[in-house]
Amino acid sequence: MTAVPARPADSFREVLDASDISRALTRIAHEIVERNKGCDHLVLLGIPSRGVPLARRIAAKLSEIDNSHVPVGSIDITMYRDDLRLKPARALAHTEVPPEGIDGRVVILVDDVLFSGRTIRAAMDAVSDLGRPQAIQLATLVDRGHRELPIRADYVGKNLPTAQSEAVHVKLTEIDEQDSVVLGVDAQ
């Protein structure tokens, strides 16, 4: 076997465009209402960075569907990671618990990509230090497989079969000035 030639930078292909993302989030919002029989007692917590705008978008859709206000916040999981000692200390992101709090509510964690599951494990630890929710659910825009922990999502925008070596990048207008999900191989 010869070495795999370096792929060109444009080897990434788009797997979801802006309207796909919007439809996926609309469906997730409907599933949330259906599963929880309404929006009372819900709180959405986005995982920085891209989980936060996704949580806001889902909340906006929930208020259209159910005509109710769902509190949105963010939860930084850096201090709860299990791989902290493998990399230099990182900057922290913002944790913002809505004024309604999380005690007795159904917390829906929102992330862009579900991969090993380690981020969600850390997020669940972080949530339990903030209070005692009635339940924790998980919404993710993309589930790319390769779980390393017994964790699954309750709401998935798109199941995306991937190779371990591939990378999934979610771009959102709030951060990246466009809505797109691309799959490919990062340049080494």
Partner: peptide, 22 residues
């Protein structure tokens, strides 16, 4: 970097469980 990190960590003192496993 120290001041920004401290700003995020200041929230810990408002948490019901004032502890992180870091």
């Amino acid at each position: 970097q120290i001041l920004d990190t401290a700003e995020e960590l200041a929230r810990v003192s408002d948490m019901p469980i004032k502890k992180m496993p870091t």
